[in-house]
Deep mutational scan, measured.
Amino acid sequence: RKWEEIAERLREEFNINPEEAREAVEKAGGNEEEARRIVKKRL
């Protein structure tokens, strides 16, 4: 699934746990840019 690939990239890029990465992607509706913004806000 594409969402899992996005979550994996976010996890590696921001050094967050898989659960946090998945939550961000879900919140963003699968949009990678939006997920990235969500993760950055949390850091």
Rank of each mutant, 00 (worst) to 15 (best):
N15F: 08
L10M: 04
I6S: 03
E32D: 03
N15P: 11
V25L: 10
R11E: 10
R37T: 08
K27L: 15
E19R: 09
I16K: 00
K2E: 14
N31M: 07
I16H: 01
R1K: 14
E12Y: 13
N15Y: 06
I16S: 02
A35W: 00
R37G: 06
K40P: 02
R42H: 15
K2D: 13
E26S: 10
I38N: 04
E5D: 10
R36T: 05
R9N: 06
R22I: 12
L10K: 00
A24Y: 05
K41H: 10
E5A: 10
A28L: 01
E34F: 07
A24D: 03
R37F: 07
E5W: 08
I6T: 04
V25H: 01
I16A: 03
A35C: 02
G30F: 04
V39K: 01
A21S: 06
K2T: 14
N17F: 11
G30M: 03
R37N: 10
E34G: 05
L10S: 00
E4D: 11
R36Q: 05
A35Q: 00
E32W: 13
E20M: 15
K41R: 08
E19Y: 11
E5L: 12
P18W: 14
R1Y: 13
K2F: 14
A28W: 01
A7P: 01
R11S: 10
F14W: 04
R22C: 06
E4M: 11
R42I: 15
K40G: 06
N15M: 11
N31A: 05
F14K: 00
N17A: 13
G30Y: 04
E23R: 07
E13K: 05
E32S: 05
R22W: 15
L10G: 00
E23V: 09
I38W: 10
V39P: 01
E12N: 11
A35L: 01
E20F: 14
E23N: 08
R36G: 03
V25E: 01
K2Q: 12
A7R: 03
V39I: 15
I38P: 01
E23D: 15
A24T: 05
R9F: 04
R42G: 15
E33A: 14
L43P: 10
R42W: 15
N17E: 12
I16Y: 02
E19N: 11
A24C: 07
E4H: 13
E13S: 05
A28R: 00
A28Y: 02
E20G: 04
A24P: 01
K40H: 15
A21C: 10
E33M: 08
K40T: 10
E32M: 09
G29L: 12
E12T: 11
K41P: 03
F14A: 02
K27F: 14
R1W: 11
N17L: 14
I38D: 06
A21Q: 00
A21E: 00
I16L: 07
G30A: 03
N15W: 07
W3G: 03
E12F: 13
E5N: 07
K2S: 13
R37M: 10
E5Y: 07
L43I: 09
R1G: 13
W3T: 04
K40E: 15
R36S: 03
A28N: 02
F14G: 01
V25G: 01
V25A: 04
P18S: 14
V39W: 03
G29I: 08
E33G: 09
N31K: 07
E8P: 01
A28E: 01
R9M: 09
N17I: 08
L43K: 06
I38C: 07
R42A: 15
E13G: 03
E4L: 10
G29P: 01
I6F: 04
N31E: 07
E8F: 13
V39S: 02
A24G: 02
L43D: 03
L10P: 00
V39H: 02
E26G: 07
W3V: 04
V25P: 00
P18K: 12
W3Y: 09
E26W: 10
R42M: 15
G29N: 13
E26R: 09
A7Q: 06
E19G: 10
E33N: 09
I6V: 08
R42S: 15
A24Q: 02
W3N: 07
E5M: 10
R22K: 12
N17R: 13
A21T: 02
R22P: 00
E19Q: 11
K27A: 15
K41V: 06
I38G: 03
I16P: 00
K40Q: 15
R42V: 15
R9D: 05
I38S: 05
E19L: 10
E13V: 06
R9V: 06
E12R: 14
A35V: 02
E33S: 10
E32Y: 11
E34Y: 10
E12H: 12
R36E: 04
E33R: 10
E4S: 11
R42K: 15
E5K: 08
G29Y: 10
E34A: 08
K41Y: 07
I38E: 09
N15R: 12
R22Q: 10
K41W: 07
E33W: 09
E5F: 07
K27R: 10
R36M: 05
N15G: 11
V25Y: 03
R37D: 14
E12A: 14
R1Q: 13
L10E: 00
E26Q: 11
R22D: 06
I38R: 04
V39Q: 02
V39N: 01
E4C: 05
R1P: 10
E32G: 03
E13L: 06
R1A: 14
A21D: 00
G30S: 02
E33L: 09
G30I: 02
E20P: 03
N31W: 05
K27S: 14
E23T: 08
E23C: 05
E12D: 12
A35H: 00
R9C: 06
E23M: 08
E34D: 09
G30T: 02
N17Q: 11
F14Y: 09
K41E: 15
R36K: 06
K40M: 15
R9E: 05
E34L: 12
I6K: 03
F14E: 02
A24M: 05
K27H: 13
E26I: 10
E4N: 10
